[in-house]
């Protein structure tokens, strides 16, 4: 009986919280995400174009472009600017590869105080680790399916 009353009180309170909670500024977030994410990709496209001017194909240029963007992301993270990009840009800053770089560099910097091995070394992959684990696993499963269905992956 007391339990039932409790459940009801909890449910009523959570309803109240839900109805009063200040809403996220979704429209603003989405607009910022569009322009920040678009701008980062645009920079990437210019870098890729630069490599292509030096005789690379679009496909060949993808890898060095990624490396340059990761370097830029790391530099901005080190200078303490990238968290501001994401604060306004949201997923516009997180989703591009520069955000992946931020996710590796930020914990590495921060856990310097715990030493080079157990701090930097271990924490480098705190956020990037799940992305690699599931990215690699998903790619394996997709590749395997294609291999089984078509004989080539």
């Amino acid at each position: 009986m007391a339990d039932q009353e409790n459940t009801q009180r909890v449910r009523a309170y959570q309803e109240l919280v839900k109805s009063r909670r200040p809403s996220k500024p979704i429209l603003k977030n989405v607009i910022y995400a569009f322009f920040v994410g678009g701008a980062i990709c645009e920079v990437g496209q210019w870098i890729q174009w630069g490599f292509m001017q030096n005789g690379m194909t679009a496909k060949e240029a993808t890898s060095p472009t990624t490396v340059v963007l990761i370097g830029l992301g790391a530099l901005l993270t080190g200078l303490g600017w990238y968290d501001k990009v994401v604060k306004h840009g949201g997923m516009g800053g997180t989703l591009p590869i520069t955000g992946f770089s931020n996710a590796m560099v930020a914990p590495a910097m921060e856990f310097r105080s715990e030493g080079l091995v157990l701090g930097v070394g271990a924490k480098l992959f705190t956020v990037a680790g799940p992305v690699l684990v599931y990215g690699l696993s998903a790619a394996f499963v997709v590749g395997l399916c294609r291999y089984l269905l078509t004989g080539v992956a």
Partner: peptide, 26 residues
């Protein structure tokens, strides 16, 4: 195949991360 294709990006991120940890402070 997967890691071979992504090697450049991952290795760059590891090296830059290590480098930033040595040079910068949060």
């Amino acid at each position: 195949g997967g890691l071979t294709a992504a090697a450049g990006g991952i290795k760059a991120a590891v090296l830059f991360g290590l480098f930033a940890a040595l040079v910068f402070k949060p």
